[in-house]
Amino acid sequence: MSNADLLPSLLFKINENQLALEAAILELSNWVEQRGSAEVADNVRGALWAIDKNEEFIKMTLALLMTPD
């Protein structure tokens, strides 16, 4: 398997890790909010917005990269 063949799989795994981290951080922001720090929780959710905004593009691009020629 060439390095070029590995790239789509690597990017897919990195994206999976990113989404898992997003979910974990969201859980922490909910926990923080329940303990009275709504402003901090909102700031965290705002930072996570970029991941959510870019998710569809990343998925579409990965699907194209993983499609056999």
Rank of each mutant, 00 (worst) to 15 (best):
N30D: 14
L21N: 11
M60Q: 14
D5A: 15
E27D: 15
R35G: 00
A23G: 06
L48N: 03
A63S: 13
N17Q: 11
D52Y: 04
R45Q: 11
L28C: 04
G46P: 06
M1A: 09
V32K: 08
E22A: 09
G46D: 07
T67Q: 14
Q18R: 15
L48E: 02
A4Q: 14
D52V: 06
A4C: 01
D52E: 11
E22K: 07
I14W: 07
L64M: 13
W49G: 00
T67I: 01
F12T: 04
I25F: 03
F57T: 10
L48T: 03
R45L: 07
E55M: 11
K59H: 08
A50Q: 10
P8T: 06
A23D: 12
L28R: 11
V40H: 07
V44Q: 02
D5I: 06
A23Q: 14
E56D: 13
L26R: 10
I51K: 07
E22Q: 12
L64D: 13
L62N: 10
P8S: 04
L65I: 00
A50Y: 07
N17W: 05
R45H: 12
D52N: 10
I51L: 14
L11S: 01
I58K: 10
L65S: 03
A47M: 10
V44H: 00
F12G: 03
E16R: 11
L19N: 13
A50S: 13
A23H: 11
A47E: 09
A47T: 07
K13D: 15
N3F: 05
L65M: 15
E16W: 04
E56C: 02
M66C: 02
L48A: 07
E22P: 00
W49I: 02
G46L: 04
W31C: 01
L19Q: 15
A24P: 00
L26K: 03
E27A: 15
A4M: 05
L48I: 06
M66K: 14
K59N: 13
